[in-house]
Write a protein that binds this DNA or RNA. Structure first.
Lengths: 205, 205
DNA sequence: TAAATTAGCGCACACTTGTACGCTCAATAT
DNA sequence: ATATTGAGCGTACAAGTGTGCGCTAATTTA
């Protein structure tokens, strides 16, 4: 029973329920471009026209969702880094953390995955920014921890992130045991890259 | 001026115009789930209801498109193999061939790319089959040409194919010069994997 | 030649969609 | 205490959708 609420608080609460409703609609069968304004409004418990009090478009809502999902992803990265510093292999820890994210925030990850190759240029660009961010941080980490040249580190990080996302795409529909097997494969593949990159770094800079 | 035509020929011709119309609708802004039956019919120059004489669903048409795109991809693979046998590095030749495909069959590739992480489980499965096929052939090739164990070859092939598809996804929206730079990066990354895989293969089998 | 088949069409129907417009009525500002 | 604001609602409309039904006209079969 909410006792009192300022107007702004109430508005924020409604906005949140719109966002949450949209996320819940984004299950394995729906994408941003296939959910309608009315559908979201219905799920959020407001009139269709009230939607406009919060977002000018369905696209504006979509960008908000991408941002939120990207934020969750960045939080994951921080979490992974702290675990690494606490011990445990870099690759192993990162992969496990990532897989946890895919499972526990599956709708968020699905959104990023889908809109990465979706129909909206704006959404694609937004997701790409998130991934670039991801690559950059990993690249910095690698460069500073291995003394590898920046260009090599960047190549390695890009390849790794792409593999991780691909694996995540498969993991999202997989069972627990399939996911574990996939994680093992991924870890080995990332080691290929790490090994190969360090080889070429020592050889040709 | 077509002089005469059997009924079957005429029907096949109409079917083809439906398929072609659908492919043409699948530009950078549209996906299978966002094109409507009426839209396809309009583009094909037939009445909406005539569509049903050829496909029971829009989904049935979708599966046909995925199959056709996959077929084009397989033809590409054959072409790449023949070029390899004629000399030139395996990786280099494969990447160039693939990039050519992405450019000259961009709508087909886009279809595969998009439906790979799309909303329809049936489409996803269909695309996955095509990719698995791709991986398997590369895996066989690697195993027989390097004497590497099947499991290692499979891991390597999977990683390579995933990287290639990721690069293709970026190449499709890129300019000529960007594409060339991207191809260079990809080639180097594939070398990482090849090097890493052969290292682990010699070490632990 | 007569009968059967069938690709393609037009009409109709019940829905869903985005959004313009004007109202209410509670929270805020004056 | 009074005036203003603004979140949320209901109504309405034009446009689009998938698809059932029955017709035509030409090809195929008998």
């Amino acid at each position: 029973m909410p006792h009192k609420m300022t107007r702004q608080q109430q508005k924020l609460k409604t906005r949140r329920s719109i966002i949450d409703a949209a996320f819940n609609l984004l299950d394995e069968q729906r994408s941003l471009s296939s959910i309608s304004l009315r559908e979201v409004a219905r799920a959020a418990g407001i009139a269709p026209t009230s939607f406009y009090r919060h977002f000018k478009d369905i696209d504006e809502l979509g960008l908000t969702l991408v941002d939120e999902a990207g934020l969750a992803l960045r939080q994951l990265m921080r979490q992974a880094r702290s675990r690494i510093d606490a011990g445990g292999g870099v690759i192993h820890t990162s992969v496990n953390t990532f897989m946890e994210f895919v499972v526990s925030n599956s709708n968020e990850f699905r959104l990023l995955l889908r809109e990465h190759s979706g129909t909206s240029p704006a959404f694609r660009a937004a997701v790409l920014r998130e991934i670039q961010h991801f690559i950059e941080e990993l690249s910095d980490y690698t460069a500073s921890h291995t003394g590898m040249g920046r260009q090599m580190a960047s190549l390695q990080a890009e390849a790794m992130v792409k593999l991780v996302f691909s694996a995540g795409a498969e993991a999202i529909d997989a069972s627990e045991v399939q996911r574990l097997a996939q994680a093992q494969r991924l870890i080995q593949q990332l080691r290929f890259i790490a090994k190969g990159a360090s080889f070429y770094a020592n050889k040709a800079g």
